[in-house]
Design a protein around this nucleic acid. Structure first.
Length: 665
RNA sequence: UGGCCUAUGGUGUAACUGGCAACACGUUGGUUUUUGGUACCAAAGAGUCUAGGUUCGAUCCCUAGUGGGCCAACCA
């Protein structure tokens, strides 16, 4: 068992507290409740990881419950896909359940609510009801049907269920409080009429319960102990509890809803609706397109369940908004693949390399290590011959000593084979190198700086390689009020090339993952046939050389993040560090403060006059700001003079100096 | 009549519940290397949004302010 005290996240903390307050460990039960209206994405992975992870940790059951209360959006295809994805991630649910399993129970409870005067039928248009609902800052007002008699409500509700009304004519609302500060409590809708076939209950029902009415009750029916969801449901908690209050049997487990911050990833979007649009508009080739942030997309891209689970675990659980950098996801997949992916040689952008002193008809088969990280991975044979391909980027006619690869007159090792020296190049009319002529030496013990991968032209097989770039060329495509996320779609997110790969790959199977040495990780795509090998680039290797190359386009955008804080707040933020700054920075800060102080009023600074004596930094910046105010015509009052004269007696010379400057004004 | 969340290096999470801010990613050096990968070593980078209070002591508790987020679907 874990020994080093692992720090608990706030949810684990809540559970531990419940446990130590007498809750039995076997009453622990969790659930993951997706709506089957789309595919699961990397964001869901966090929710899955939390609930299923808790299940594994406490050895408690976790239900997979499909929240299928809206037949207009839900489809069997999605429930199948969701099950597939969760299983692929390696999680095991206890039971597969559906909210629709509880339609009868929910209906019976609704009847009870009506009888107790806790619910009523409203027969207005949705517009009229929206009107009465008020706004976040304005209370709502009661509607005309709010005080219908129980008998009438019962009659209407039964007729709703019987299909006597069309959509929109009547709905059932909880009777709570139209003036409630929480908008969700202003008589929320419990049932509406939907005349659509449900993917499971068919035409049995034409009234369907709303999310709020369904969710907590479903948790209760399943005896879920902790119902975990993302932060945007926080306001729903009050309603969740209100509904529960009226049905709960105190001898049973009363579920608790608790909320965590959802996962955001840079350069991508997480909304099912928007992902659906990418699919429908043909921006990508389906939900499992390797560029999609869906679980099935990541799977097809070559990600492993282990990497995704590691990612989720690393990301942690808290309540503040976050944007996780994709580089963390990439780190996780590289870390996993490095250990398990067999190495192989492939040339993506070939240039011919002729070994002039190697016999035309000779071939040799060298041993090549399958995975240096795994002693048991063994070796394979790779063929060598006179005519080879190497990567075009691995040769330069002339280059500095920083360039470890092949240059004219330079030597380089061909991985698993000989050391060669480049002597001569052939070019076409446009000056592009068409052939590099080199000579090999048998002496393998020589020290050379660079090692290149290569393939023998006559032995190589061709393969289609799909390289992916991020789908959006903006860090937060979702987060711009003035622009649509579609404006940020990267038109060049897919590059298809024909590559030459070593012959051992002839037998590669769909789904297998390889490292193309010095290039990255690649997996065999589903589109592969016996005649056509297709690879997806999962992720490149870490490339420190690529980083030193681009010198000029280095000064890229580092958005001068706009500061929304009022001037006085910005000035205050200098306070703490001001007297610790080196002189040059201090001068800059002071200039900045003086600038900002132009927009500051006396009322802004006055509260800072009684800053405690030990905070000299804050007092200095206050003094500077005050100076600007005085110059701009502010009259000294008692508070000002007191502040200045007190500063004059301070130990801090900087402060004294600033104060002196003001005595003259 | 607005309510509720939230604030710690570039990013994400910690800080044993009040005891001199740690881990991971990223960045920068270096060592090893038949992958400019991996591994290993090292460094830089925050003094915890601001002010006040409680305290011997505050990232942690209280108050106020400021910034950010969520809430007005017959969606979930």
């Amino acid at each position: 068992m874990s020994e080093e005290r692992r720090s608990l996240n706030f949810i684990e903390q809540i559970i531990e507290d419940d446990l130590s307050n007498g809750m039995s460990k076997d009453h622990l039960r969790f659930r993951f409740p997706p709506e089957p209206n789309g595919y699961l994405h990397i964001g869901h992975t966090k929710a899955i990881g939390i609930s299923f992870g808790l299940g594994e940790y406490y050895n408690a059951p976790v239900n997979l419950r499909f929240d299928d209360t809206n037949p207009a959006k839900e489809e069997q295809e999605y429930v199948d896909a969701i099950k597939r994805d969760i299983s692929w991630l390696g999680y095991q649910w206890d039971k597969v359940l559906f909210s629709s399993d509880y339609f009868q129970q929910l209906y019976d409870w609704a009847l009870l609510f009506i009888k107790e005067g806790k619910a009523y039928i409203d027969s207005q248009t949705s517009e009229a009801m929206a009107e009465q609902k008020g706004t976040p800052t304005q209370p709502g007002v009661d509607g005309p049907y709010r005080n219908r008699s129980v008998a009438e409500n019962l009659d209407l509700f039964e007729r709703m269920k019987a299909g006597e009304f069309s959509e929109g004519e009547h709905i059932l609302r909880a009777k709570i409080d139209m003036q409630h500060p929480n908008m969700l409590m202003r008589d929320p809708i419990m049932y509406r009429v939907i005349n659509k076939a449900h993917h499971r209950t068919g035409n049995d029902w034409c009234i369907y319960p709303m999310y709020d009415w369904t969710h907590g009750e479903s948790d209760y029916i399943e005896q879920i102990s902790h119902s975990l969801c993302s932060l945007e449901f926080k306001p729903h908690r009050e309603l969740y509890d209100w509904f529960l209050d009226h049905v709960v049997d105190s001898k049973k487990i009363r579920p608790k809803q608790r909320e965590f911050a959802r996962l955001n990833l840079s350069y991508t979007i997480m909304s099912k609706r928007k992902l659906l649009k990418l699919v429908e508009d043909g921006i990508v080739n389906g939900w499992d397109d390797p560029r999609m942030p869906t679980i099935s997309g990541l799977k097809r891209r070559g990600y492993t369940p282990a990497a995704i689970r590691k990612f989720v675990e690393t990301v942690g659980v808290a309540k503040r908004d976050n944007v996780i950098d994709v580089s963390l996801l990439e780190f996780c997949i590289r870390e996993d693949l490095n250990k398990i992916a067999p190495r192989v040689m492939a040339v993506l952008d070939p240039v011919k390399l002729v070994v002039t002193n190697y016999p035309e008809d000779k071939e040799e088969w060298f041993d090549a290590e399958n995975n240096p990280e795994d002693e048991n991975a063994g070796f394979r044979k790779v063929p060598f011959s006179k005519n080879l391909y190497i990567e075009r980027a691995d040769f330069k006619e002339e280059a500095s000593s920083k360039f470890f690869r092949l240059k004219l007159g330079g030597e380089v090792r061909l991985k698993n084979a000989y050391i060669v020296k480049a002597n001569h190049v052939e070019k076409d009319a446009s000056g592009t190198v068409t052939e590099i002529h080199c000579t090999y030496s048998e002496d393998a013990s020589k020290k050379v700086k660079g090692t290149l991968h290569w393939v023998s032209i006559s032995h190589a097989i061709t393969a289609q390689v799909r390289e992916y770039d991020r789908l959006f060329n903006n860090e937060a495509p979702d987060a711009h009020a003035d622009k649509d996320f579609m404006d940020f779609v990267n038109p060049n997110s897919l590059k298809t090339i024909t590559a030459f790969v070593e012959p051992s790959l002839k037998t590669a199977k769909i789904g297998e993952r390889y490292q193309f040495q010095r290039l990255g990780y690649f997996n065999v795509d589903n589109d592969t046939t016996s005649a056509n090998l297709v690879f997806n680039k999962t992720v490149g290797l870490r490339d420190t050389w690529a980083k030193v190359k681009p010198k000029q386009n280095e000064t890229q955008q580092k958005q001068p993040q706009q500061n929304n804080r009022p001037p006085i707040e910005q000035i205050k933020s200098y306070g703490k560090k001001y007297d610790r700054m080196p002189e040059d920075k201090q001068a800059k800060a002071k200039a900045e403060i003086i600038e900002l102080a132009q927009q500051v009023s006396y009322d802004d600074v006055a509260p800072l006059f009684n800053t405690s004596v030990k905070k000299s930094g804050t007092r200095i910046i206050t003094m500077i700001t005050l100076g600007v105010l005085l110059k701009n015509g502010l009259e000294k009052n008692e508070a000002v003079t007191a502040f200045i004269s007190k500063a004059l007696e301070d130990k801090n010379t900087l402060l004294v100096e600033e104060a002196k400057a003001l005595t003259a004004l």
